[in-house]
């Protein structure tokens, strides 16, 4: 594939977009992992959501 005399600009545009999208995906995935871990820790200590306690009581 020949990208012509301005290949650097085309590659830089696609490369920078890929970096932005990958950073965004990583940030959301890491946030999810951290929240899941924190919720699991609280539940392991016996701290539950009110709705979960109500379900268990019922």
């Amino acid at each position: 594939m020949n990208l012509g005399p301005h290949a650097t600009f085309i590659i830089a545009a696609y490369g920078s977009a890929a970096v932005v999208v990958l950073v965004l995906i990583s940030w959301i995935a890491l946030d999810r992992r951290s929240l899941t871990r924190d919720l699991a820790e609280l539940e392991a200590r016996g701290i539950r959501r009110r709705s979960a306690r109500l379900r268990e009581d019922a």
Binding site: I28, A29, D31, R32, L35, T36, D38, L39, L42, I47, R48, R49, R50
Partner: peptide, 17 residues
């Protein structure tokens, strides 16, 4: 959708704490 799920989890966590 993923970020919304994260935010709901964050609020549940805050509520429990």
């Amino acid at each position: 959708l993923t970020a919304m799920r994260n935010e709901i989890m964050r609020r549940r966590l805050r509520g429990m704490q």
